[in-house]
């Protein structure tokens, strides 16, 4: 625990924020669906990191339990998301999200 606390909390927050922003940028600016998924994963894990850091600093295990839940849900989400992506790929021969514009109003 002391090792963890050797690094100030601010840095964790900063790292998490940077990772989260990178994730957002990836989601917003990439066209490839697989990359977008990876970016989402990045955002989730940025939050996880933050939760774990606070958990450590506050000596409260609840944060870590929460992270496990997040990871489980993220895994399920990715499984469903990739399944959808495979179906999309079979139909469009592409993973580019700009192809998916049939719902235009």
């Amino acid at each position: 625990m002391t090792d963890l606390k050797a690094i100030p909390l601010d840095w964790y927050i900063l790292l998490s924020s940077i990772l989260f922003c990178i994730g957002i940028m990836g989601v917003l600016f990439r066209r490839n669906a697989i990359i977008i998924f990876m970016s989402i994963e990045l955002m989730l894990n940025a939050v996880n990191l933050l939760l774990v850091a606070f958990s450590a600093y506050h000596n409260d295990a609840a944060g870590q339990v929460f992270v496990f839940f997040t990871m489980a849900v993220a895994a399920a989400e990715i499984a469903v998301g990739l399944a959808i992506l495979i179906v999309v790929y079979r139909n469009t021969k592409s993973t580019d999200i700009d192809v998916l514009n049939r719902l235009k109003g």
Partner: peptide
């Protein structure tokens, strides 16, 4: 008017969400 919001463009949806 509102139907123009529904562009069908996933990028746009994501941006709007963020």
């Amino acid at each position: 008017l509102m139907r123009f919001v529904q562009t069908g463009n996933v990028d746009f949806y994501l941006l709007a969400m963020v």
